[in-house]
Design a binder for these strands. Structure first.
Lengths: 325, 325
DNA sequence: TTGTACGCGTTATCAA
DNA sequence: TTGATAACGCGTACAA
């Protein structure tokens, strides 16, 4: 790879001059400017961003920590985030934590060593204390860390309420919420609060089932749902806290020959692409993933520019009624 | 962020000494070693990888260019690749090309500027010539560029053959292949070659439908499949070149009240997570995504170490029979 | 066992 | 309008 020095020599000028035409700074005669440009083309010169970043104290790198990009929600989130980042001149370092505490910590350290300008954190197994060590702009998804760290989320309580009310309105008498592990300190837990409150308020029998920390094993979902039905054969409504879980529920109902939506109604969450793709199409609570991604990037960039940011950023959810209710 | 200089001063030694304990080079007394370690902890010192990379001429960064991480196949691929990269000390710069030519080129330049040690290329809209400009280790997914660039793929011809034969064996009389755009120079096109050859050989009526370049629009799939059935109402077998397309086919059959697998049989491709998640579960051709990811990383690392690599790396596919046939 | 000095590729300051 | 030089943070000869 040619360096600025090679360009300078070949063009018969000094590196200063080359740097000037590169960055459009100061006065340069048209003649030398053209000569330098020509040599840059000839050599296919690309400025070394490592050296630039080192000098400037800014890398234009952003770390993205998620459980895994193979989960539809995080895959879609990552795609949007990368897109917005790219349009703002930032690059994404991808980190799949698998929801393992050690990995999250290790990744954070790695990102700091690589001088990222900020971190988007959407995996939350580490303790709140760990965040104080990160002296970097952070934006969090779905978790409130402390007063200062801005977080992006959607209205989880409202989502839980919409889902639960819909099931009851449709005539369900005994409902269950299958959600992530409640020991993780996530705003998503508000879905279950809403579920419980709504069911109690309306006098409907209800159950909550938590998945294990490790999110992505669909086999696990299937086992849990199978157990749920064997314990509660009259269950007629399921609020699944992701479209993936909802799809698993559909599968089990099919196995148990329970008609959807006649015998069992199901509401999913997220409205990822699969929700409207599977058969029957999943009634779900839509999170505005694209808006959330955009907002996260904006909040991060504002912090990098030392502008003020609002800490709480909760976007509205909407009910997407389809075929499972 | 504290630098090596800060550590040196606080520990009462020079930067050389700190660098030595950091990299375990040369002789150091236990006393100073411990002192330096202690100061590093106190200051929460993290070595600046930008500076290290600049000095070493090696960034430990790898660029990953895919159409979009929100597509299940590429999401799973990315997750595996990032995992293997991480275990080998490499970090992934994520690039979603959206299958746009300009973006691919732009991303390649960006990656070069950032001094990545190699590129994994799984998005293929650019011309073969463009690759000669990339003087970097590359591994390609599913495309043969020229003699020298190693590529990872699975046995597409065999996959097409397995799928087509299965449909015919099960009794289909008129079949269609819905595949990606054949104008892209991909090894995946061999699936269609196999489809055509097998159908002709066995004397079965067949059709090929290509999607538009822009891969991910499931609405597009649905429209195409709807058109397909309206033109060929007696169609009773579909070979879908991804599980996503297969899911769309299921959806349309459901709309048209065609029973699966009695009236229409469907075979998907990839065996991504959704294949066994949806209802009915998709019979599909399994690509060994995990092995392919691992192999790609290994091939890349070998190139970086200037070891010899085999150019053609084709892994076997397997038929996963499920409920759509 | 530890320190001095230089270079990695770039940009900004100051001089010419 | 252009050039020489220091600095960004780090690692390694070479010297002490």
């Amino acid at each position: 790879m040619p360096t600025i020095k090679d360009v300078a020599e070949k063009a018969g000028v000094t590196v200063t001059t080359v740097s000037r035409v590169l960055n459009n700074r100061g006065y340069i005669s048209e003649a030398t400017r053209n000569k330098v440009y020509r040599v840059m083309k000839e050599l296919d010169y690309q400025p070394n961003e490592l050296a630039r970043s080192l000098f400037r104290g800014k890398s234009n790198l952003i770390g993205l920590i998620i459980p895994t990009v193979s989960h539809p929600f995080f895959g879609e989130l990552s795609a949007y985030i990368e897109g917005y980042a790219h349009s703002k001149g930032y690059k994404i370092l991808l980190c799949n934590s698998q929801l393992e505490r050690e990995k999250e910590i290790e990744y954070i350290d790695m990102l700091k060593r690589h001088q990222v300008d900020g971190i988007i954190m959407a995996s939350h197994t580490i303790e709140v204390d760990e965040y104080s060590k990160v002296n970097l702009p952070i934006v969090t998804f779905d978790r409130r860390i402390k007063e200062k760290i801005p977080y992006v989320s959607s209205d989880n309580y409202q989502g839980g309420k919409l889902a639960t009310n819909l099931l009851i309105d449709k005539g369900c008498k005994q409902i269950a919420h299958i959600c992530g592990n409640l020991s993780l300190d996530l705003l998503a837990n508000k879905r279950n609060e809403a579920f419980v409150a709504t069911a109690q308020e309306r006098g409907i029998k209800f159950h909550t089932v938590q998945t294990e920390i490790n999110v992505f094993e669909t086999k696990q979902y299937e086992r849990l749902i199978l157990e749920l039905f064997s314990e509660h054969p009259n269950l007629d409504g399921i609020f699944a806290s992701s479209d993936l879980i909802a799809a698993s529920a559909i599968k089990i109902c099919y196995q148990l020959k329970k008609e959807i939506p006649d015998e069992v109604r199901i509401v999913g969450y997220d409205d990822t692409n699969i929700a409207s793709l599977v058969t029957p199409q999943i009634t779900t609570i839509r999170q505005p993933i694209e808006m959330m991604s955009k907002l996260a990037m904006e909040l991060l960039i504002k912090q990098m520019n030392e502008e003020k940011v609002t800490v709480e950023n909760i976007l509205p959810v909407t009910l997407q009624e389809r075929e499972t209710t």
